[in-house]
């Protein structure tokens, strides 16, 4: 700096430049949420839990990759979400409250809605952020498995087909888990309550569906997984790629419909919830 450097108070400057429209604002809110899900741009404390979950699923992916390199074809890309579903659930219980309950707790909504951010846009951006984050935490490790397998064997196209199928299954998981998780989190302003409620809904329904399945009634056995959001995506997967993982009988279309309807209803309910929120 030169000796003559001095501070100039240039006073207030009006802004005449570009102002982006609602679509760009939606994009900014979505990216902000996606980054926050992984603790990016946040304190070190906010990074701990998401990255522990990512690390765990990475380890699972590593084990699968090693098993496949040993010639085992029993576990494929589409198996990762169900094998790691508990980890995904933990991740959801961390991320959804982080993105949704925190804004409620800190009274941030008046600031958003006093800007060109509509209630539906806010709800939609948050939902998409969580769904994308969950999908990424499954699709990333699946890609790792692909990288390991494709280099190891050589049937690149076969592996690629498997990877794309795996991504689709991961997307089903992401939409069902994310949709329900964000909706639950949007009802609780305390992060701990929200996380507990998400865990409760996903974990309590699991044994209920299990008991219904074991009652011996064939139809009931095929339809019971619909009652559990944890099992539903696996049923959708069975309908998409039949492999006898789950006894869904002839009810494949029902599972496909549920796989679309559950996230859609969650999104709708979420928008209604934010329409009602008073400022």
């Amino acid at each position: 700096m030169s000796e003559q450097s001095m501070i100039h108070d240039i006073g207030y400057q009006r802004y005449q430049g570009q102002r982006l429209g609602p679509r760009s604002i939606f994009g900014a809110l979505y990216v902000h949420g996606l980054r926050a899900a992984f603790g990016l741009g946040r304190s070190a404390k906010a990074k701990i839990f998401p990255w522990i979950a990512v690390g765990l699923i990475g380890v699972i992916a590593l084990v699968i990759a090693i098993a496949r390199s040993q010639g085992s074809d029993d576990v494929g890309y589409a198996d990762l979400p169900s094998i790691a579903s508990v980890v995904v659930l933990v991740f959801l219980a961390i991320v959804a409250p982080e993105l949704v309950s925190r804004d409620l707790r800190n009274n941030l909504l008046p600031l958003y809605f006093a800007r060109p951010v509509s209630r539906a846009a806010y709800a939609g951006a948050k939902l998409l952020s969580v769904v994308s984050a969950i999908w990424l935490m499954m699709a990333g490790p699946q890609t790792l498995i692909f990288a390991a397998s494709a280099f190891g064997q050589g049937d690149v196209f076969g592996e690629l087909r498997g990877l794309l199928g795996g991504w689709l299954v991961a997307a089903v998981y992401a939409f069902v888990f994310g949709g329900l998780g964000v909706l639950i989190a949007s009802l609780a302003s305390r992060r701990a309550f929200a996380a507990g409620a998400i865990a409760a809904v996903f974990l309590v329904t699991l044994p209920v569906a299990g008991v219904l399945m074991s009652l011996g009634n064939k139809t009931l056995e095929s339809l019971a997984p619909l009652a559990s959001p944890t099992m539903l995506p696996e049923g959708v997967r069975e309908a998409l790629f039949p492999a006898d993982n789950m006894p869904i009988g002839n009810y494949g279309p029902v599972y496909l419909a549920a796989g679309v309807l559950v996230p859609a209803l969650c999104a709708l309910q979420l928008i209604l919830r934010y329409k009602k929120v008073s400022l």
């Binding site: 802004y15 430049g17 570009q18 102002r19 982006l20 429209g21 760009s24 604002i25 900014a28 809110l29 902000h32 600031l111 958003y112 800007r115 060109p116 951010v117």
Partner: peptide
């Protein structure tokens, strides 16, 4: 908050 109002 600036970005939420449309600033690049």
């Amino acid at each position: 908050m600036g970005r939420m109002t449309g600033l690049p």
